[in-house]
Nucleic acid binder design. Structure first.
Length: 875
RNA sequence: GGGCGAUUAGCUCAGUUGGUUAGAGCACCUCGUUUACACCGAGGGGGUCGUAGGUUCGACUCCUACAUCGCCCACCA
């Protein structure tokens, strides 16, 4: 017997428990060929980030996966790490510098990068420790960083291979350009914003064109019309001189099916250098490019008096000038999508630029005598089931995205990141792509070579994450044992950013999939279903605050239970508080046990032949077995919410509300109690690791719970008949309590009961003590059968009749009402059952067991009705 | 424009291949310090499962429309 505190205070234990786990080495799996591996790569948070609910969800779910598999005996590796997050981190540091009035150019590349490294070093520990706060049982000895040596080597290796295979090329193409970040962006790094702008209708030589960007007229080289448009039929193929603000300029008229005849006048001005659609038209018709907007978002020198203006200033001026010239026909309000930078929300400036790309449609992967593109390969592994996405519906979204993928622009004009391993010879123009930094030109041996100043898109390196972190390109033991990883768990919002890219990069470099499964969780939303936004702190919940207030276990439960993969979930404080209550409940259940068992009991190994004493024991043991079966099944099928809910209900509604309450008399059976409790702790450990581990220690166990084995269903501990009996007892108790409440019989008032138990007489004889205590009855006359009793309220459970002779308390009117209502319900039910059973369609086509079940129900219902009818005569 | 998801009790959500008289938590009402827990216990009220059709012996579950909300993709100047 020992006593623990009355309430569990999470903050007092968590850090200590975590340290014990980490120090013990359980987080670090060994390479053991006799065991199966289970691997999860942690999606690396930004090195300079702070923990938010997105991370918290991811960590909670992945920790459940890992702890579960570890307990099942897998060699379970959860590999943590951080991402250098090129643009985001560089922006942060630049902002800091700006406060001191310095730009990165003042410092120069080398100094600036030192500054960034310093900053990262300082802030990386923050996120590391916050990951620990969540209880994440990841292997810190294998922690990686996207910019560390090994990963940089992997990046370089992949780049060189892809270059040699002709997959990486340098090209002059139109790109998404952010004038603020001063860098290119990938297509999916572009966000859209609804905006109403002016649509200008402008006289354009023999045409009238409509545009929202009159400033781009300076870069026009064509007019496009639909091939079917009769209005312009005769003009196609001809060239026209168009009078413009800077004098006449020449355009060619082309017919292109992408042009919508209905929009505007059906004639489109084409600016190939500053519009994606126009660029494509230009490609199809070999039109000249004319660049007029610079990388800083200002008009180029070739723009005459407009040179140096921002695009917006220029637009204003040009419109004025066009109007003066009498070319402005009209303006109207026009609602469209404005593309903006996903990082800084600055409008994107599409422009033509010389960049590095990955060719997604070039067949280079040799397989089965065919050559496939990396895109085809990435589609194939999902189509053929090598990678399974949960929930499945995201397959379609993935296919759609992948099928429409264009060449991926991988160069970024920022300094922080993996610098592109390409050198240019200034003497002979040779392009040198190399695994090692070259000292001289490989062609002319000149030392006058210069490295490409650009860096790679952050997603290039994170695309290699699952295998680069395991040592690739070296053939490490880790790589052989832990790759491909088992499951990749992350939010659906980075399906394209990251998951798709990992699949592309890994199937190319490793010739295997990065992971066998993808589990996508939803986004956490506010109580009103809104997105939590950093800019509005009143909408956000800080996971660290919640941990302080309610404990990590409560936070984890609140994010896992009640959610389904791929669906968003609302989170609010009361929900977390609710799970805190559950944490305290299991604490107190254990507290109760500890107050009632001896040290000897704690040491005793449960033996089913020796230790089972009562029906209650058999009942709870059976319930536990079914729980083990169901919960394991749910875990296997990634239904963590369901598994958690079942455990929750078992502990609260079955173990605490019934078994412990039953135990309170002289019936306490320490061995079974401890056995059930320990198993509950095991089942709950992946969900709420801290409190279960703390309690485990109190139960005199030498090993830590984290190292224990997952419970296995044991048929020998299933006693279905006893469960049926016990549930009848529970029903009797509940019904008596209900009657007491309806009749306002004070709890303190003990009453008498007469029970005609029929075949249950012997069973109930052993249960009188519990029955009396739990239903608060003074005296029970237990008989097999007997006469109806006057002035009594009755309840019927199965064949059993229970009479509470409340005498003067019995309100005939009230009782009649109660019984009438019950009778009505039963009759309604009976009717529906009879309807079913008399229907040959039902009996003919429904499975036999379903029909059997309904027959049984009908029999029960009829019995109850008989008894109720008999009771009416006694009122 | 294309696609996806949601719609179940006042609120937040479960409901696994169609087979209950549709569940839970919170909130609400009544009662309650009895060998853990008031972060608790006992009892209770509350839903024609978005609408309209259809398939079936049987639909919250499958099909078709529609409505409302949300998300993703594409994008036309």
């Amino acid at each position: 017997m020992k006593e623990i505190e009355k309430a569990y205070e999470a903050v007092k234990y968590e850090d200590d428990i975590y340290k014990k786990w980490e120090d013990s080495g359980v987080f670090t799996p060994q390479i053991d060929k006799s065991k199966e591996s289970f691997t999860v790569s942690m999606p690396p948070p930004n090195a300079t980030g702070v923990l938010h609910l997105g991370h918290a969800t991811m960590l909670a779910i992945e920790d459940i996966m890992i702890r579960y598999k570890r307990m099942q005996g897998f060699s379970a590796l959860w590999l943590p790490g951080t991402d250098h997050a090129g643009i985001a981190t560089q922006n942060r540091v630049e902002k800091n510098l700006l406060e001191k009035g310095i730009t990165r150019h003042d410092l120069g590349r080398k100094k600036f990068l030192e500054e960034v490294d310093e900053f990262v070093k300082g802030s990386r520990n923050t996120i590391r420790n916050q990951i620990r706060k969540m209880g994440a049982s990841c292997d810190w000895t294998r922690e990686r960083y996207t910019l560390d040596k090994g990963l940089s080597k992997a990046v370089r290796e992949v780049f060189v291979r892809m270059y040699d295979d002709g997959l990486i090329y340098r090209g002059n193409r139109i790109v998404n350009w952010c004038p603020r970040c001063f860098s290119t962006l990938a297509d999916d790094e572009v966000d859209y914003k609804d905006k109403t702008e002016k649509l200008y209708w402008i006289k354009y030589g023999p045409f009238t064109v409509a545009t929202t960007r009159p400033e781009t007229i300076l870069g026009d080289t064509a007019v496009a019309v639909n091939p079917d448009d009769k209005r312009y039929k005769d003009m196609v193929g001809k060239k026209f001189m168009i009078p413009g603000v800077l004098g006449d300029f020449e355009v060619q008229v082309v017919a292109d099916k992408e042009v919508d005849m209905e929009f505007g006048t059906g004639a489109v001005k084409v600016t190939p250098a500053h519009s994606f659609a126009d660029f494509e038209i230009a490609q199809r018709h070999n039109l000249p490019l004319k660049s007029v907007i610079d990388e800083d978002g200002k008009m180029k020198d070739n723009c005459g008096k407009y040179a140096g203006m921002t695009t917006l200033e220029c637009r204003e001026e040009i419109v004025k000038d066009i109007e003066k010239m009498g070319f402005l026909e009209k303006t109207e309000e026009y609602n469209h999508n404005l593309s903006i930078c996903y990082r800084c929300k600055t409008p994107i400036e599409p422009l033509v630029s010389r960049q590095w790309f990955i060719a997604v449609d070039k067949p280079v992967i040799e397989e089965d005598g065919k050559k496939k593109t990396i895109k085809e390969k990435a589609l194939e592994v999902v189509r053929n089931g090598d990678i399974k996405i949960i929930p499945e519906r995201f397959n379609k979204i993935y296919f759609n995205w992948m099928e429409n993928l264009h060449d991926w622009c991988i160069s970024r004009q920022i300094w922080f990141g993996h610098q592109i391993p390409v050198w240019y010879c200034k003497d002979c123009n040779e392009v040198i792509v190399s695994r090692e930094d070259p000292e001289k030109c490989t062609k002319c041996e000149s030392t006058n070579i210069e490295r490409d100043p650009d860096t790679l898109d952050t997603w290039f390196s994170s695309g290699l994450w699952t295998f680069s972190t395991l040592g690739w390109p070296e053939k490490t033991e880790d790589l052989g044992y832990f790759h491909p990883t088992s499951i990749l768990e992350t939010g659906y919002d980075i399906l394209f950013f990251w998951i798709a890219r990992m699949i592309i990069m890994t199937t190319y470099a490793m010739k295997e999939v990065p992971f066998k499964k993808v589990y996508l969780h939803g986004l956490i939303r506010t109580r009103d279903g809104k997105k939590m936004s950093k800019s509005d702190p009143s909408t956000t919940i800080d996971p660290l605050d919640m941990i302080k207030e309610y404990g990590t276990d409560a936070l984890r439960l609140s994010m896992v239970i009640g959610g389904t993969p791929g669906n968003d979930m609302r989170l609010y404080e009361e929900k977390i508080a609710g799970y805190r209550n559950f944490v305290n409940k299991i604490w107190n259940a254990t507290r109760f046990a500890l107050l009632n068992v001896s040290d000897e009991d704690l040491k005793t190994q449960f033996d089913s032949r020796k230790h089972i004493k009562s029906h209650a024991d058999k009942w709870i043991l059976t319930k536990l077995q079914y729980l083990i079966k169901d919960a394991t099944d749910k875990m296997e099928n990634f239904r963590y919410s369901d598994a958690g809910t079942e455990n929750y209900n078992f502990v609260w509604a079955e173990l605490c509300d019934w078994y412990l309450e039953m135990s309170k008399g002289k019936n306490l059976n320490p061995i079974v109690l401890i056995y059930v409790l320990k198993n509950s702790l095991k089942l709950l450990h992946p969900f709420m690791p801290f409190v279960t581990e703390v309690l485990w220690r109190h139960l005199n166990e030498k090993k830590m719970l984290i190292e224990e084995s997952w419970p296995i269903f044991n048929e020998d501990l299933v006693f279905d008949k006893d469960v049926e009996d016990m549930e009848i007892l529970h029903q009797i108790i509940s019904d008596i309590r209900s009657v007491r409440a309806k009749y306002s019989v004070e709890p303190a008032k003990k009453i008498r009961a007469v029970i005609y138990a029929g075949k249950y007489k012997d069973f109930l004889k052993n249960k009188l003590e519990e029955l009396k205590r739990m239903a608060r009855i003074e005296n029970i006359d237990l008989l097999e059968k007997g006469d109806k009793i006057e002035k009594a309220v009755c309840v019927f459970v199965s064949d059993i009749e229970v009479y509470l002779p409340l005498n003067e308390l019995v309100d005939t009117e009230k009782e009649t009402k109660r019984l009438t209502k019950e009778k009505e319900n039963l009759e309604k039910f009976k009717k529906s059952l009879e309807g079913k059973l008399n229907n040959p369609g039902f009996t003919g086509s429904a499975p036999a067991e379903v029909v059997e079940k309904e027959k049984k129900r009908l029999a029960e219902t009829k019995k109850s009705l008989e008894k109720i009818n008999a009771q009416f005569s006694k009122l």
